[in-house]
Design a binder for these strands. Structure first.
Lengths: 174, 174
DNA sequence: GAGGCCATGTAATGAGTTACATGATTAT
DNA sequence: ATAATCATGTAACTCATTACATGGCCTC
C-alpha cells in the first residue's frame, strides 16, 4: 500500500508522468525511503485513476500522460499521513551488511568500515550542495529539501558510527 | 537474496532455531535493516540446508531444530560481505511519511515533527541502555552492539533533523 | 539513418505477508 | 485442566523485480 501514497505524495508536489516518477524514484526518495520500477508504477497509476485519486491533467509527445492529484487523492494522502505510524516495512540491504560485519576477520572489517567512513563523508557533502542549490534564491523550503537534509543528517550519522566502530576496533587491538 | 545472508549472519553469530530467528528478526536487525516472518524463514532454512550452507546441529523439545552455519556457508557470507555493495533494496515506510509531510498544513506538519522529535529522543536513550547492558562486563563487542550503537546514531540523527525542520518552520512563520 | 533517450505497457518469476493448520510443553 | 507460549509447517494472495515488447522523437 505504501507505493500508492508515495505516488500521491510525489504527484501532489507537482504533476508528472509515469516516466518522470520513475526518474524521481531513482533518486531522492528512492534512495532513502521507497523505490519502485516503471513496471510497478504504470499499473498503479491506472488503478489510482480508476479510483478517482489521481487524474490525467495533460498530454505530451510519445503518448505521454501527465497525472495530477484530485481532491479525493489529497484527502486520502492526508488521512494516511496523520494516522498512527504502526511499525511498517523496513528493508535496507546496505545496513544489513553493516550489521553482519562483526563476524569478519578484523582486517576485512576494518577495510569495510574505512570504505563506509569515506563514502558517507562524500555523500553527505554532495547532499549539502544539493540542499544549497535547492534553496538558493527562494525563501521557503521546496519539497525535496526535507529529504535532502534528512540525507545529510543520516550520512553524517553513518559516518560517525563508522568512526566509532573503527575506534573501538583500535582500542581492542592492544 | 538478502534474506539468506541475514540468516547466515544471524546463525554464524550463534546457532538458533527457526523460532529463535523469528524472534530476533522482530527486534534489533529487523527494526533497522531487514525483517522476515516465520513463514518465509522456515522454507529458506530448508533450502539453505539442501544447499549445504547450514546444518542441523541440535534438536530440542517440540520438534525444535537448531541450525548452525557450515564452512561453505561461512565462505558464502564472507564473499557477499566483501563484494561491491551496488545499491540494493531500500524500503522504509516511516521515512516515506516524513518525506511527504511538506505538503501538509503547517499545524499538521508541526504536530508530526514534534512527535518525531520526542519519540526519537526516547528511542535513542533506550538503545543506549541496551548497548550498556550488552557490553557490561565484557571487553569485546558482542555482535548486537554494532546494531545497537547504529540505532543510537540513527535516532539522534532523526531527532536533530526534526529539530532542524521545526526551526526552519518557525523562521518562516514570521 | 543510427544511436540514444523518451514513453508506455505486459508477462513471467521471485519475494514477502496473511491466514490456515497442527501439536507439544510449561506455568498457573 | 486451561491458557500461554514454544515450535514448525503450508496455502493463498499480494507486492516487487526482471525480462520482454513496442514505438516515437531528437540529435548528430
Amino acid at each position: 500500500m505504501s507505493l500508492r501514497y508515495a505516488l500521491l505524495g510525489l504527484l501532489r508536489d507537482r504533476p508528472a508522468s509515469g516516466y518522470d516518477l520513475t526518474q524521481r524514484f531513482a533518486q531522492g526518495i528512492g534512495r532513502y525511503a521507497w523505490s519502485a520500477k516503471h513496471s510497478q508504477i504504470y499499473p498503479e497509476l491506472r488503478r489510482l485513476t480508476e479510483e478517482g485519486l489521481i487524474e490525467v491533467v495533460g498530454e505530451g509527445a510519445r503518448g505521454k500522460k501527465v497525472y495530477g492529484v484530485t481532491e479525493a487523492g489529497r484527502a486520502e494522502l492526508r488521512d494516511w499521513l496523520l494516522s498512527e505510524p504502526k511499525d511498517g516495512t523496513i528493508r535496507n540491504e546496505l545496513l544489513l551488511r553493516l550489521f553482519l560485519i562483526s563476524g569478519l576477520a578484523p582486517e576485512d572489517r576494518i577495510r569495510i568500515l574505512e570504505d563506509v567512513e569515506a563514502e558517507t563523508a562524500k555523500l553527505a557533502e554532495q547532499l549539502e550542495d544539493t540542499f544549497k542549490t535547492l534553496t538558493d534564491g527562494t525563501d521557503d523550503l521546496p519539497a525535496g529539501s526535507y529529504a535532502a537534509m534528512f540525507g545529510v543528517y543520516s550520512y553524517r550519522a553513518m559516518h560517525n558510527w563508522a568512526r566509532w566502530a573503527l575506534e573501538e576496533q583500535h582500542k581492542r587491538d592492544h
